[in-house]
Simulated assay, not measured.
Amino acid sequence: MLDGNVISTAIYDLPQTMDYNQLADNFINNLPTNMTLNNSVVGVGVTNNKLAIVLFKPGEQALTEKATSNLIGQVAETYKNAGVTVDVENGLQTGAEISTTDLGEAFKQVSPMLLTGEKGTVISYDTLKTIFAALPGNSTALEGSKNYYNNNNAYHYQFWLAG
Rank of each mutant, 00 (worst) to 15 (best):
Y157T: 01
S69T: 10
G144L: 03
Q61F: 12
K108H: 10
D13Y: 08
S8Q: 15
G95N: 06
N70K: 15
G117N: 10
L23F: 09
L55R: 05
E77N: 14
L2F: 11
G104H: 03
T78K: 04
K129L: 11
N153Y: 07
V75D: 03
K80G: 05
P136R: 02
S40G: 13
A82D: 15
A10I: 03
G137R: 00
L71Y: 04
N21D: 04
D19T: 05
Y125T: 15
K129P: 01
E65R: 12
I7G: 00
A52N: 13
T9L: 14
S69C: 11
N138R: 04
G163W: 06
Y157N: 02
Y79Q: 14
I28E: 11
G45C: 10
Y125D: 15
S139Q: 10
A133T: 00
Y155P: 06
D13C: 07
V122P: 03
Q158K: 07
V44T: 15
L103W: 00
T36V: 07
A24D: 11
A106G: 05
L2M: 13
G91S: 06
A106P: 03
Q93G: 04
A162M: 04
F56R: 08
G117R: 02
I98S: 00
T33F: 03
Q74N: 13
N150M: 13
E65I: 08
G95I: 13
L161W: 00
Q109W: 00
T121G: 09
S145I: 03
A24H: 09
W160E: 12
I11A: 07
G95A: 02
L114W: 06
N49S: 02
T9A: 09
G59I: 08
V88T: 05
Q93R: 13
L37W: 06
Y157F: 07
I28A: 05
Q158C: 09
N30I: 04
D3S: 12
V86R: 08
G59C: 08
Q16E: 10
L63G: 03
T140C: 01
V86E: 10
E105Y: 04
T17A: 05
A154E: 05
K119S: 14
A52D: 10
K129I: 11
G91F: 04
Q74A: 07
A62L: 12
S40N: 07
E60S: 13
N5V: 15
L37N: 08
